[in-house]
Design a protein around this nucleic acid. Structure first.
Lengths: 157, 157
DNA sequence: TCGATCAGTTCCCTGAGGGAACTGACTTTA
DNA sequence: TAAAGTCAGTTCCCTCAGGGAACTGATCGA
């Protein structure tokens, strides 16, 4: 398919998509997040082709999102766990779940509930401005060029 | 490529991916969010093939994420704007930008800054638990079956 | 009248994803 | 100790989605 690479776009969203932009990675990450950590478990849960799963896992480990950890030496068995970067990346998944719960769930309600362990409550995770502590809406955000935008890219967005 | 459809998975993340899972949609949404709203503008900004852009825009309009609005009757010209659902979906993009800023930006810093218009400050958007107002980390979340999970799906995640 | 702009549409080609069978190291059961 | 099972991939072929580039058609400005 010769997919265009986004990594060189001067945009943090594009760079994140370069990491988990193809459709299976977020679901693999979700599985690891909820405790499905072994190759065959993930494969069975998602119905993903084994070939693609192999490639995705290797990619996510290379990029530092997941780590391959041995949980049994004999027989040699491995599982995949989230790195610190991977945990942070799950914020994106939580935002997706929030959106899906709100807009795409049927009348029966959300299929999965996420409970915040420290407070023990099932509650949505909302985006808040780290400065004023108010909820953030995308249409109340202005976009400015940042320090990482190089001169040649400044002619673009 | 006969990509697997995720929409019938009992999972809000999968359903959201069904909507914007292929790699271009989030970038198209990003462009619309920051004010790049016309076909040729988006095409030039992203370097996306015109054919794929046509398909994606049609899909996003059908699904209620974008709306096609006439901004000039003669000549007939249209632009794409976010619906309420689209604005909500941008939360996912903001989470992606947050992650990219934190982990994938070079030493120069983030390429784009997002300013919260109500308070006027450039600050990261963080996820907070709507119940206890504390920051949320993915490894401090427990997953429970929700009301929308049907019995036959309960054997899975 | 000529060119430019906008918003697509059509064509062919390439290569990523799906499906299913195969491998190989190790363990458990009979 | 032979047979079957488990885990974690690897290899094969085939199909179809995405890329690239040219084309269309309506309108406008000079």
């Amino acid at each position: 398919m010769q997919r265009t690479q986004f990594g060189d776009l001067v945009c943090s969203i594009a760079r994140t998509l370069d990491l988990i932009g193809e459709p299976w990675s977020p679901l693999i990450l979700r599985d690891v997040m909820v405790g499905i950590r072994r190759f065959d478990q993930i494969q069975a849960d998602l119905g993903i082709s084994r070939k693609v799963l192999t490639e995705r896992l290797k990619w996510l480990v290379e990029r530092g999102v997941l780590a391959r950890r041995e949980y049994s030496a004999r027989p040699p068995r491995h599982e995949y766990v989230l790195t610190d970067q991977g945990v942070d990346l799950c914020d994106v998944l939580i935002a997706m779940a929030r959106f899906g719960d709100r807009w795409l769930a049927g009348p029966a309600g959300p299929p999965v509930l996420y409970r915040h362990r420290p407070c023990g409550h099932v509650a949505p995770a909302d985006l808040y401005c780290a400065h004023c502590d108010q909820p953030i809406r995308a249409d109340a955000i202005d976009v400015l060029p940042g320090p990482g935008m190089t001169a040649e890219a400044e002619t673009r967005t």
